[in-house]
Write a protein that binds this DNA or RNA. Structure first.
Lengths: 344, 344
DNA sequence: GCGACCTGAGAAAACGCTTTCTTGGGCAAG
DNA sequence: CTTGCCCAAGAAAGCGTTTTCTCAGGTCGC
């Protein structure tokens, strides 16, 4: 009856007809414009309610030039870190009436640029987690993404708030912790080679090595997931290290699992530390010593920064730096007498 | 120079001017319409490239009546189950060029209805995970959500594919497993009272009790997260049960953690089973016996069902039922001699 | 050589909304 | 009683696309 022909959905025109007013008046009523006669307003509201009219957000977005939606690009939705960022972002944005559109690049850095652009065009702003993207490319696209917040990347582009976790400091804290426990042979189970946060960890380790020339710190190739850690068990054992700094909690858990299969005791034989303090880190056996990152809060902050940009507010603190907090649990313990290295 | 005044972004009009053609021709070229002269086409493409023109998706959506976006409503983004569904959905949809808009209801069932409606209007279809919503309300809103796929809920509404996990069968399999190990006193650590999937588990347990009148099955109140399991430790010990069926893996992990703190041995003193087989279930200590649900695949299937609806394809199999697979690990073991009940 | 057909590109309408512009009517002041 | 103002509501112009409609020019056939 009142169905529109084209889309089949109820439109503003149907309400206007039913209430005997113009489209404009319906729009005014729906948007709480008070320059409309109360009688007419209630007539419109009645008509809208009866037809169960709901404004079409697409038409609205086109007219208003905003979508009330923000985008987030993540490299891997299976990674608890990005899940947590997404959660914090989504919750904070929802409180201001914004929704979140997700774009998962599945670790393909070439996709990140395209996805970011596409997502940005559909949204009012973008949160970008693109650890593998080259600096050059980032600088290239950053301006076109403008209401943009970066996570764990810095950019020279103007007006791009940056939320970074101080991985360098975190890994130093963990290394110090192991040294305090008497470990003198450490190994860093690295993350993906081109990862920005891995770079920060490496820088931190350089600083650490400079400050502790007597400590042997080996670098081992790795990755960012559980399997990586599990597969690295041989390399770890060969290294002869007694204190292992895993790239993150996932890798640490994989490594502990592998070590357990080899009959090694953690922390009796080897101490293992993670990074991030994902929810499950408390519940591994042994519970994982790690550097806690307030990651959900980071997602929340990302929204606040983005909101300021969208609202064109002055932002006195464009971005912030998060200091990981050393979280000592049972996976790290006193070094025992140095084991002999299997090779070399 | 070529910037449009209103939004500041490059529009189709700018390209048209630069290429010396009409808006319509630019549109034709951008959409690969071959009725346009090759020379003109390349001139348009050159102009578009030079201006870095990218069509505005909002305008496009309005004209086309589609957004290339689907929505998903989840009760809790912190729950690994929904994270996995989201992941599977997002990946599958991305392969067909669709994006995913997320709406987290934060377990507030009254929000679910509103969120679902809003999300649906912005998208071409919706995946709804609303375990707490009443059946009545679901039936009420289902038609208006139409390209709609339900997860772990059934609906009488026409054309609503339903993807359900057979929690009833899964919990029976787990109970059988415990009985086979010699347990005669079981306890079910229930999920949220109004949860649909909890209801399915309860039905399964009724069937189990009917088939095994000699087995004592206690019902304990619970919830769906880690803390719930952790807090339930007293109730579990009081129940005197030696085989515990936790609502899900999270609850089971919390319970095991609590039991460990109490000095109880799993599975020596008490066997614990979970449900879902979340990624971390393999890595708890002891590794968790659970009922594995191919949850990421379920998200993927949700997309396929939704896609069929969006494309108005005939769908011979509207929905499917997933059978959990018993995954025996170390958290379940032979019953030891019955413990005495603390109370009663 | 002229008319019918066809092709290719511009003009304009449509998508569903918001908002500016316009207009008519009521009221107050001169 | 007339003139000017103000206010409320309708008309219309966007927002940025796609797509239909229209028309001009060229080609082919007779």
């Amino acid at each position: 009856m009142a169905r529109r022909s084209a889309t089949g959905r109820i439109g503003i025109a149907d309400v206007a007809v039913k209430a005997g007013v113009s489209h404009a008046t319906v729009s005014r009523v729906m948007n709480g414009n008070f320059t409309v006669d109360p009688d007419i307003a209630s007539r419109v509201r009645a008509a809208a309610a009866e037809l169960k009219y709901q404004p079409n957000p697409v038409g609205r977005s086109l007219a208003l030039g905003k979508t009330d939606t923000i985008g987030i690009v993540v490299p891997d939705l299976a990674n608890p870190t990005f899940q947590a960022i997404l959660r914090g972002l989504s919750r904070a944005a929802a409180q201001d009436g914004y929704r979140v559109l997700i774009a998962d690049s599945f670790e393909v850095s070439s996709e990140e640029t395209i996805l970011a652009g596409e997502a940005r065009r559909r949204c009012d702003g973008l949160v970008l987690c693109a650890p593998r993207m080259s600096d050059a490319e980032l600088e290239e696209i950053a301006p076109s993404l403008h209401p943009l917040v970066l996570i764990n990347r810095t950019s020279a582009a103007a007006n791009v708030p940056t939320l970074v976790v101080d991985y360098g400091q975190g890994v130093q804290d963990l290394a110090e912790h192991l040294v305090d426990l008497g470990h003198t042979r450490l190994a860093f189970l690295a993350g993906p080679p081109r990862s920005a946060s891995n770079g920060m960890r490496l820088q931190g380790l350089e600083a650490f090595k400079a400050a502790h020339p007597h400590v042997d710190v080996r670098m081992l190739e790795g990755g960012s997931d559980f399997d990586t850690g599990h597969e690295a068990v041989d390399a770890v054992l060969e290294s002869g290290a007694t204190g292992i700094l895993a790239f993150n909690d996932l890798v640490a858990m994989g490594l502990m699992s592998g070590l357990h299969e080899r009959g090694m005791d953690v922390p009796g034989d080897i101490s293992v530390t993670g990074f991030d303090d994902i929810p499950f880190a408390r519940y591994t056996t042994p519970a994982l010593t790690t550097a806690a990152v307030p990651i959900t809060e980071l997602g929340e902050q990302a929204w606040h920064q983005l909101r300021a940009l969208i609202r064109k507010e002055e932002n006195d603190a464009p971005g912030s730096r998060y200091q990981p907090r050393l979280q000592v649990r049972a996976s790290s313990g006193p070094a025992k007498a140095p084991r002999s290295t299997v090779h070399g």
